[in-house]
Design a protein around this nucleic acid. Structure first.
Length: 320
DNA sequence: AAGGGACTCAACCGCCTGGCC
DNA sequence: AGGCCAGGCGGTTGAGTCCCT
């Protein structure tokens, strides 16, 4: 026995929404709020499937939607979130206020995928295309050059992934260069160039213990060039989102000042939302105020932020 | 100007999940 | 425990638009 249809398809409109339908839907939701999508079309006088109404509202009519092109910062954030979360568009959208999962999914498939491919990076794995070795479960010794390593007042070693230096014009130029180069050379010869172009782009992922442990070990992870790495003795590099750099450092500084740890430590937690600058969001599950007081007595490591309900990118580290 | 291929993105489809009975 | 249902999600489609020849 098949599933019952969500609506009577014979009596519903399909395809593009008309302005009148939009107005009806908006008026109804303003008056009655969201929810009960199945009964909404009838109540609102719409010949639409409830799902269709929900989608139209969420993806297009919602007043808090941010219209217009994605910014470089948003690009950057989407790439990083995708490297952490995969095709979990709704989760990614949750970190980008005003953007919908559908919008991000489309943008990924039409723009970012191609951009990464032009860089020689597999958008699915965030690894260099043709890099068979890195698919190995046992990472080999590699050399890393940490050019964009920003020193902070905290003397905490971090590696900043930055696309910010690349202006739109540069992108166009680089894409043209890429096409030429791809036709001229074997892709293998390109890999060093890709790394040179994005010297701080290291998209190999691993899950590590809380960040505070790495603070203690930071002296061993700040070298600007080679060292061997393995899962046993990792060379730790932290992902850090440039545009939230300042806020993060502030929070981190406060946490250290008060003797606590930051985001992933076992005494205080700054939630993922806040670490991304999405303060006061419904996702916020901070257990610590910035003055260092703790409002929750969770103990142990919250893998993937499951206890706090959100991912904590600070504890998801990138290594080579 | 016209044809056609490439691209974009709103919308649809089908599956999954969780709540309720 | 199992069925039903609503909501949500990710993958896919296709109409409209853009761009190149």
């Amino acid at each position: 026995m098949g599933r019952s249809p969500c609506c009577e398809k014979a009596h519903t409109n399909k395809g593009a929404w008309t302005k009148e339908e939009d107005h009806r839907l908006i008026a109804y939701i303003r008056a009655h709020g969201e929810g009960c999508w199945r009964s909404l079309p009838k109540a609102a006088g719409l010949l639409r499937c409830g799902k269709s109404c929900r989608l139209r509202w969420i993806n297009y009519l919602r007043p808090d939607l941010k219209r217009g092109n994605f910014t470089e910062d948003e690009d950057e954030l989407i790439i990083k979130l995708h490297s952490l979360l995969g095709n979990k568009w709704s989760l990614i959208a949750g970190r980008l206020p005003g953007r919908t999962d559908n919008e991000i999914k489309n943008y990924w498939n039409t723009h970012i995928r191609r951009k990464l491919l032009n860089w020689g990076i597999d958008p699915a794995t965030h690894r260099p295309v043709n890099d068979g070795q890195t698919n190995n479960h046992h990472p080999t010794t590699t050399t890393t050059t940490n050019i964009n390593n920003r020193s902070s007042s905290l003397d905490v070693t971090t590696t900043t992934i930055s696309f910010a230096n690349t202006s739109p014009n540069q992108f166009v130029k680089e894409e043209m260069e890429d096409e030429k180069l791809n036709s001229d050379r074997n892709i293998k010869t390109l890999l060093p160039e890709i790394q040179e172009r994005c010297p701080d782009l290291n998209l190999d992922l691993r899950i590590s213990p809380p960040h505070y442990q790495n603070i203690q070990n930071n002296s061993s992870s700040s070298s600007s060039s080679s060292s061997s790495s393995s899962y046993i003795q990792p060379q730790v590099q932290h992902v850090q989102y440039n545009h939230y750099h300042h806020q993060y450092e502030h929070q981190h500084h406060q946490a250290l000042k008060t003797g606590g740890s930051f985001a992933g430590g076992n005494s205080t937690n700054i939630c993922f939302s806040c670490s991304l600058g999405i303060t006061n969001s419904k996702e916020c599950s901070c257990t610590t105020s910035l003055n260092g007081t703790t409002s929750n007595n969770n103990t142990g490591y919250d893998f993937l932020g499951l206890n706090s309900g959100v991912l904590d990118y600070r504890s998801i580290e990138i290594m080579k």
